[in-house]
Amino acid sequence: MLQKKLYNTLFILILGFYNAQSLKIRILDSENSEPIPHARIILSNTVLYSNDDGFILLPETSKNLEISASGYQTEKFANYNAIIKLKPLYKDIDEVKIINVDIKKILSDVLKNYEKRYYDQPSIYDIVYRQKNSDDDNLSFLLITNGKIWMESNTYNYKDALNKRFDNFIQMEIDSVKYFKSTISEDDICKGQSLNRSKDFVGNIFFNYELARVNYYFKTKNAKFSGRIINDSNDEQTIVYKISNPEIDVTGTIVYQKIDKTIIHYELQYDQAKYPSYKVKTKNGSEYEFKVGNGVTYYDFYKKDGKYVPSISGTKGYSYCTYDGNKQKNSFSREIIFQKFSETQAIGLERKIDLTKRIWENIPKQEKQNNSILLSQEEQKFIDEKSYQE
């Protein structure tokens, strides 16, 4: 009990320190006062998102804020408020007037016209990269960095990717490591299995890659799908949909801009229970059983100077690893916040990292804390705990 009190006191002190440097607000659900993660605020030249506890740090001069979050009404505030509550778009989906829509037509059309409707010229973004991993629901890995991403056309290039020539269409730079901690040993069999390199890592950054993947589900044999408009206001429609085929079941939500025919918010939940488990061998010959779990991908876009540019790209999910009769759940989340967008004539970055390697293999393995990044309580507790290496 004493330890818990000391930790709570420490967390309050930390928040007080943050508040002294900038404005700290918290975004809550107006119905149940629960924190809203991934609530977005767009300032004149910076995009900010709330953390897992609903907190956002703002520059002291911030005013005339517009706050949006998936499933909530967008709100505008002229002045600073420490607590901001957003109203849900709907309380009970069963009470909403349902309008059926051809979701296949919408998603196929956006993919077909992707380069016409989203920004398709060379660009550079100031980014925040965040990755977390948990083993049996205990945080075991945290990496938060600031950096840059250069994109040749904001579009995934399948030909170059197939030959691992990622540098031709995307480059990433790490400017500073804000937090980096791992309690995972290279000798662990199951712990940290979700850290393994994924062939989809680069692809998941790009929305057209995700659109191509979900459009494939429509084309599989015996595929069934449905879409429903659950909110239609101004020029935007909130649409929920389902796709089911012999391989996978997915449920999603999009916010569709009717005039420009773009998707400005996308979230898809993958139910991968139909995928069988399979055997995997480690470098030293040990064998374990791997079973993929469910996952989520999500993207946001906003209109700047007449162009739609990304503000976030993320994926999270879990898997199961069974070794020597013991089953372990491994969870992961990776996201990139595109904080600042700028057009460029440059053909790359000077200090690009190697995207064929895992991100942390490109950076010095040391923790460099900086108060410009606001951690959640879970993250702060993990950073404060001693690891087995210490």
Rank of each mutant, 00 (worst) to 15 (best):
G325Q: 12
S387N: 07
K283M: 10
K164M: 15
K221H: 14
F382A: 09
K258F: 04
S387C: 04
Q369H: 10
L48I: 04
S44N: 15
V296P: 00
S313R: 02
Q73K: 14
K307P: 00
N19Q: 15
I359D: 05
Y129C: 00
S387D: 10
F341M: 06
I248D: 02
I106D: 09
N204T: 11
P364N: 14
F338Q: 02
S286D: 12
I189R: 10
I363K: 04
Y320P: 01
V309T: 03
Y318M: 07
N19F: 13
L86P: 04
K87N: 14
Q171A: 11
F332I: 02
T74V: 13
R358D: 12
G317H: 00
Y209W: 14
G285H: 08
I42L: 13
Y288F: 15
K24I: 15
F290D: 01
Y323Q: 04
Q171Y: 09
Y308K: 02
D136Y: 07
Y388C: 00
V177P: 01
V110D: 02
L28C: 07
C321W: 00
P246H: 12
I243S: 06
Q377T: 06
F206D: 02
F206N: 02
Y114S: 08
L6A: 10
R26T: 13
A212W: 02
I373C: 03
A20F: 13
F332A: 02
L6D: 10
N64Y: 06
G314L: 03
E390L: 05
N168G: 07
D53I: 03
V240Y: 04
T74H: 03
I239H: 09
F207H: 11
V240E: 14
S185T: 06
A20N: 12
P35Q: 03
V240M: 11
L23Q: 13
G252E: 11
D232R: 12
I27F: 02
N362A: 06
Q339G: 00
D175V: 04
I239L: 09
M172S: 08
A82M: 01
N196R: 14
L162V: 07
V292D: 07
G54S: 07
I184P: 01
I243C: 09
N32I: 09
G203Y: 00
V101H: 03
G348V: 00
T322L: 08
Y209T: 03
S30W: 04
L65I: 06
K307V: 01
Q345L: 14
F166M: 13
L58W: 09
Y308I: 01
K304T: 07
I336Q: 06
G147S: 12
P37V: 07
F55M: 08
F225N: 13
E210I: 13
R351N: 15
Y308L: 04
I239C: 12
P276G: 05
K112T: 11
K224R: 15
T183A: 08
I56T: 06
S333D: 12
P35D: 04
D29T: 06
Q131L: 06
E379D: 06
D53C: 08
N168M: 11
P122M: 03
T9Y: 15
